[in-house]
Design a protein around this nucleic acid. Structure first.
Lengths: 187, 187
DNA sequence: GTCTATAGTAAGATAGAC
DNA sequence: GTCTATCTTACTATAGAC
């Protein structure tokens, strides 16, 4: 028996994502990953032969794909800047569960001080996000260097609001961020 | 022999701090802590009988003391608001080594999802910081609710700039933050 | 594809010599 | 106060039955 997956790939990755978001890479033990997914450790190794590192890599890739579809692509659309930013806003609220979930990029940075297995991935994820925002701001009429500064600031503020939300045990900082992000960028 | 400490308490705590900042709580193994301090594991247990958790607690307390002396007290002084903020700026640059070091509060949050051993400490550290900034802003003439929002935003932006600096492998976000923090708060 | 059982390794922690 | 040596537990990973 059990010749078929007891959990779909999407759901599996979502559960793993949650564990890495909550505990970071070092803190995400196979026991925790196993309990979160309902799969025994050996079953996890069947799906991810290279173990925990592969799980984190695939979790990162899945997050990348989600962000591309729900955030970056909309930001690159031909809609007016305010519309594009508002779409990002909705997606961010989903991505971080209204401020209850930490950012994967922050939680997986812990693993690599100098050059870890996720450094390149994380760096390019941040860069892609900032670049997409720069394009929106340039479209909105901002001079390029100012656009870069504002975009970088908006991404920093987002991640800081998540750090603060987690640290203070309230989603208020994140919610305030969402409320102000449009003005923060375009105002 | 070896009847006297081979490393002073201050230096010891500083080294431990660095490890927790780089690796987080779960990632900071006793081997890493031992190598960073030059003390064997058994010697670390002699100084911290309750082990790793005690080390992290004392590291947090030492950071608290440093922040109180170099940031919070100056913020509570009678100097003009701009002077107080400029003092904070200098201290922040030291505390985070110009953006090369992550924030301890962020790195130790990973350990506790719901209520971990550091939650209260972290929460009150954030709160103390924000409250001190609120007082400065109120002194500068801002209405209280606006002061709270600006203070919280400045703290979030700081932590986000550190997340971004680490993730992108450049201290630029942090340096930009420092450059703008006075205007961000009082402008 | 999932499981139980188990190997192998690294982690946290202690005992006792100097 | 620091060390070597050791213990115990937890973690990562694999083997093989179903």
């Amino acid at each position: 028996m059990a010749r078929h997956p007891s959990i779909a790939d999407d759901e599996l990755l979502a559960r793993l994502t949650g564990v890495f978001q909550d505990l970071g890479y070092a803190g995400a033990s196979l026991v925790a990953l196993s309990e979160a997914t309902g799969l025994k450790r050996a079953s996890l190794y069947h799906r991810f032969p290279e173990g925990k590192e592969q799980m984190a890599q695939e979790v990162l890739s899945a997050a990348d794909a989600w962000v591309s579809e729900h955030i970056l692509d909309p930001l690159k659309s031909n809609d007016p800047p305010e519309v594009r930013v508002r779409q990002m806003k909705k997606a961010l609220n989903q991505l971080y569960s209204g401020g209850k979930q930490a950012c994967l990029l922050n939680m997986l940075s812990s693993a690599d001080v100098d050059e870890g297995p996720f450094s390149n991935h994380i760096r390019s994820a941040f860069k892609a996000w900032i670049d997409a925002l720069i394009a929106v701001l340039v479209d909105a009429g901002f001079e390029k260097e100012l656009a870069r500064q504002r975009a970088e600031r908006a991404v920093a503020l987002l991640h800081g609001s998540l750090v603060l939300s987690r640290g203070m045990g309230t989603t208020r900082p994140f919610k305030n961020y969402l409320k102000d992000v449009e003005r923060e960028l375009l105002g």
